[in-house]
Amino acid sequence: MKAILTDTTKCIGCRECVIACKKRYNLENDIPRRWSAEDGLSARNWTSIIERPDDRYIRKQCRHCLEPACVSACPVGALSKNKDGAVVYDSVKCMGCRYCMMACPFGIPRYDWDRQVPYIRKCILCADYIAKGGQPACTEACPTKATIFGERDELVAEAHRRIDENPGKYFNRVWGEHEIGGTQVLYISDIDLSFLTYGQSLGTEPLPDRTSPAMHAVPYAFFGMASLMAGLSWITSRRTKLREQTEEKEEGGEDE
């Protein structure tokens, strides 16, 4: 399982990652539009640098969750997790319902709002490059090694090593290690990164687990309801029949 570790204390905000990403995937011009969010991500910006007070720079991108809400939400399976763990998108399947955008707790997927044929656009962890043994454009371009690429286990260990070796420097937390089941894009930082989830702290329960009880109940609900209705219908029709018979009998009795 591949991963990216971003150490925000090393980031100088040069945006080489943003440029590399745009160049690799030929992403077009991007001007802030009515529908743009304030974080700088858009259909044509798959990663962005968020500037925080006191010269803090935080690179935002798709978190490539281990159990992604978007993949579980997509009704046609257009989003899927490949063998390296990258959450990739198949535009052929997509029907444009935007449920993935609603489901993502990080608010990552973006839409081609100005296109007549719009697609969902987001970071795909350079899936085609890492499959060939390469690495994502962003980590390759980073001049200060603030954002690095590697195996997830190793990077989690590296993150903890950095936190332990520099007491007091970092927040004692690896963002993305456990939240909603863990993500493949990890952060360590000297500031609180909860603004990436709009100030909320995410639990450790993976989001697809929230829907699965309801989805598992579907066949039971269907056949349960159907047999309940069939049973009730049988009872009511039998009752009507019996009543009619008694009435007939009574009528017959009068006749005799």
Binding site: S72, C74, Y99, P208, T211, M215
Partner: peptide, 9 residues
């Protein structure tokens, strides 16, 4: 294209 995990499906 099936994704039975999805409520929308």
């Amino acid at each position: 294209f099936w994704n039975p995990h999805s409520a929308l499906f």
